[in-house]
Simulated assay, not measured.
Amino acid sequence: MARASHVVVFLVFSNLAIAMGATLPLLDPYVGKCKSSCEEELNLSLYLHQVVSGAAHNQEVILSPGFANSFGVMAVNDWTMHNTTDSTASIIARAKGMHIQATQSQANGEAWFLPFSMVFEDSSFGGSTLQVMGTISGANGEWAIVGGTGKLSMARGTIKFTKVQPESNPNTENYRKIDIHAFYTPSPAVSIVTLLN
């Protein structure tokens, strides 16, 4: 008469043999690996429209501690971005974030530190974002792209900007031409491969 331990061993090995002979779905060995180049490149020029005050303002001061050189002033922003300096043109993206005056000494001028999410509204990248950080301390400068989401996932790169002054309201309204150069990794499509015997 067979012992219980022999029956258990027989059942384990017979089930293993059946499982090994069955057709098993396996993940594609290239999913998550680059077949050639994972990254795609983005080169895009837009115009950032900042309206400091007035009926159509798109930023608001939320903290003004009263220090010299406006040090510590903080504002939230929802700046619009268009493909032209015409503010009535279609909105491609919005810069949603904040900017903080981070220089104490008047001798050093101003340096507005800004972290923001560039949220795309156009059909190409709608809902995707670029995460941006940097400073504004003059008419020209550069910001870092430190991340992205959606179609622009894991983005990295830079944004160079140049101030383009509008014809009217130079003290309350600004346009900056921004040149975006970034690399991003689109999400891979997951596929299942069935091995045949």
Rank of each mutant, 00 (worst) to 15 (best):
A19F: 09
I18V: 13
L26C: 09
V119H: 09
I18T: 10
D179C: 00
K35G: 04
L63F: 11
L196K: 14
A89L: 04
A95D: 13
V12N: 07
E39C: 04
S37N: 11
A4D: 00
Q104E: 13
Y30W: 01
L42H: 06
P166H: 06
L16G: 09
T88I: 02
R176N: 15
H49L: 10
S36H: 11
A55Q: 13
T172Y: 05
L26I: 13
H82F: 02
S64I: 05
I92G: 06
A93D: 05
F116I: 06
L42T: 01
M98S: 10
T135I: 12
L48D: 05
D179Q: 12
S128G: 10
M133P: 01
K33W: 05
T23H: 09
N58R: 08
M118A: 04
H49G: 05
N15R: 03
A155H: 01
G150P: 07
V51L: 08
S187P: 05
M118L: 15
G32T: 02
A102V: 12
N108A: 15
T129R: 08
S124M: 07
K177N: 02
N43A: 10
S45F: 01
G126K: 07
K35I: 12
C34N: 13
G21L: 15
H57L: 12
T103F: 04
V132C: 07
A102K: 08
N43F: 10
L16E: 09
F116Q: 03
N171K: 07
G66I: 04
S64L: 12
Q50A: 09
V132M: 06
Q106C: 06
F116S: 02
A111I: 05
N83R: 14
S70Q: 11
A107P: 00
G97P: 08
T185I: 10
G21Q: 11
V76L: 14
I92H: 03
E167Q: 15
S168Y: 14
T80H: 07
V31E: 03
F116M: 07
L16K: 06
G126P: 03
M154K: 14
V61Y: 04
V193D: 04
L130T: 03
L48A: 09
T185Y: 00
V9F: 02
K151C: 01
G134I: 05
N77T: 10
C38T: 07
G157P: 02
T103S: 14
A111K: 01
